[in-house]
Amino acid sequence: MRREVPLFICFIMGALMAVQFFVPHQFSITLYQYMLRWLIIVLTFAMLLGIGSLIKVHSYKVRFKREGWGYSIVALIGLAMSIVTGMAGILGRLILGQERMAEGFFGDFLFTFFNSGIDLGSGFMWLFSYIQIPMQATMFSLLAFFIVSASFRTFRARSLEAFLLLIAAIIVMLGRVPLEGIVGQWLPDLAEWILEYPNMAAKRGIMIGVGLGAMSMALKIILGIERSWLGGTE
């Protein structure tokens, strides 16, 4: 029963969603939107499990002073700060009441900081704009350096394939640089041709394979042939 019930639910829902794609009736759309709402609800509750897991893992590291436990403290403080600044307004209204909050109990700055939830100017958005976004941008900018190191490794022409790759890459790279006045239009045209024809042909070939593979995978899951997602390998 532990396996049969999930398999049955998976079959019914999978088949239903596949049929839904071909039925344009309002009933079908309502059903689809209903499912999407369910998904949002499940996601919300799953997020609580995620936060629980995060707290548990990092608390364990701090408690037993595992390697890098200092980072875990930063992670936990970040989590606590986000929750506090995001929910302070709600908590303030609950504890102090709407009137005292509106009177500016905390002073103008603190009132905006704590009372605005995730609005512009709120503490939560301050954390997001001045801490999270710069940190994300920093991580993303690392990509430029990694591309250089990866290119250096790849473009060593040790075989015929690597040599062809090197030539194609040089043409496409130079073709994207505004060098028309120096080398003429033929270079950008050649780069465009490589992207539009050989590259596109290979991409489409892979995409067809991906599409069929995804359909086959979905079919196997709906029919219960693929059961690994239930846990284990049987």
Binding site: I51, S53, L54, K56, V57, Q132, M135, Q136, M139, F140
Partner: peptide, 8 residues
Amino acid sequence: FYVTDSQF
């Protein structure tokens, strides 16, 4: 374990 839903 869960890490974060932020990409970077």
